[in-house]
Deep mutational scan, measured.
Amino acid sequence: EQYVVVANYQKQESSEISLSVGQVVDIIEKNESGWWFVSTAEEQGWVPATCLEGQ
């Protein structure tokens, strides 16, 4: 499942990744806490779901 990044995010923990507007990410896991585990071409990590929008 692919989502587009709609807000920049700077990682704050080692388990997170930074996002840039316009990036496309694959969703691996959706957590009810509002944090999703995603994959980019370069890395995987947790990001806030509020930064993502379905395609």
Rank of each mutant, 00 (worst) to 15 (best):
E1G: 05
Q2I: 04
Q2D: 04
Q2L: 07
Y3F: 12
Y3E: 10
Y3P: 02
Y3S: 14
Y3I: 08
V4W: 06
V4C: 13
V4S: 15
V5D: 00
V5A: 12
V5E: 00
V5M: 04
V6F: 09
V6R: 13
V6S: 11
V6I: 15
V6G: 08
A7V: 10
A7F: 11
A7G: 10
N8K: 11
N8L: 04
N8P: 11
N8C: 12
Y9N: 02
Y9V: 06
Y9I: 01
Y9T: 05
Y9Q: 02
Q10M: 03
Q10R: 11
Q10W: 05
Q10P: 06
Q10L: 12
Q10T: 12
K11T: 04
K11C: 08
K11H: 15
K11R: 15
K11D: 03
K11Q: 09
K11N: 05
Q12N: 08
Q12H: 10
Q12C: 07
Q12G: 09
Q12S: 12
Q12R: 11
Q12K: 14
E13G: 11
E13P: 02
E13R: 08
E13W: 03
E13K: 13
S14H: 09
S14M: 12
S14L: 14
S15A: 13
S15L: 06
E16H: 08
E16R: 05
E16M: 04
E16P: 02
I17R: 05
I17G: 01
I17K: 02
I17N: 02
I17S: 03
I17F: 02
I17V: 12
I17H: 02
I17T: 10
S18Q: 04
S18T: 03
L19C: 13
L19Y: 02
L19N: 00
S20G: 06
S20P: 03
S20T: 12
S20W: 08
S20M: 09
S20L: 14
S20F: 11
V21F: 05
V21D: 02
V21G: 03
G22Y: 03
G22Q: 03
G22S: 03
G22I: 00
Q23W: 05
Q23S: 11
Q23A: 05
V24H: 06
V24L: 09
V24I: 13
V25L: 04
V25R: 00
V25Q: 08
V25D: 01
D26T: 10
D26G: 09
D26P: 00
D26R: 10
D26V: 08
D26Y: 06
I27P: 13
I27K: 02
I27Q: 02
I27L: 10
I28A: 05
I28G: 07
I28L: 12
I28T: 10
I28N: 07
I28V: 14
I28R: 07
E29F: 02
E29G: 07
E29T: 12
E29H: 15
E29Y: 03
K30C: 04
K30S: 05
K30N: 04
N31I: 04
N31R: 13
N31D: 10
N31S: 13
N31W: 04
N31H: 10
N31T: 08
E32Y: 04
E32H: 09
E32G: 13
E32R: 10
E32A: 14
S33H: 12
S33M: 06
S33D: 15
S33W: 04
S33R: 12
S33V: 07
G34S: 07
G34L: 04
G34V: 02
G34F: 02
G34T: 04
G34A: 07
W35S: 12
W35V: 10
W35G: 04
W35E: 08
W35P: 02
W35A: 08
W36T: 06
W36F: 15
W36Q: 02
W36P: 01
W36C: 10
F37R: 15
F37K: 15
F37A: 08
F37I: 08
F37E: 06
V38N: 01
V38C: 05
V38I: 05
V38E: 01
V38K: 00
S39T: 12
S39A: 11
S39Y: 05
S39K: 12
S39G: 10
S39M: 13
S39Q: 12
S39R: 13
T40G: 07
T40K: 12
T40I: 10
T40W: 04
A41N: 06
A41G: 10
A41S: 14
A41T: 14
E42C: 11
E42I: 04
E42Y: 08
E43A: 12
E43L: 06
E43P: 01
G45W: 00
G45P: 00
G45K: 03
W46L: 07
W46Y: 12
W46V: 07
V47H: 00
V47C: 13
V47T: 03
V47M: 03
V47Q: 00
V47K: 00
P48N: 03
P48K: 05
P48E: 03
P48F: 00
P48Y: 00
P48L: 03
P48H: 03
P48R: 05
A49R: 09
A49W: 02
A49Q: 05
A49V: 07
A49I: 15
A49F: 09
A49C: 14
T50N: 08
T50Y: 10
T50L: 09
T50F: 05
C51I: 14
C51G: 02
C51M: 01
C51N: 03
C51F: 07
C51K: 06
L52M: 08
L52F: 11
L52E: 00
L52Y: 00
L52G: 00
L52W: 01
L52Q: 00
L52R: 01
E53T: 13
E53Q: 14
E53V: 09
E53S: 12
E53A: 13
G54R: 13
G54D: 09
G54L: 15
G54C: 12
G54P: 10
G54S: 12
Q55P: 14
Q55H: 13
Q55L: 09
Q55N: 03
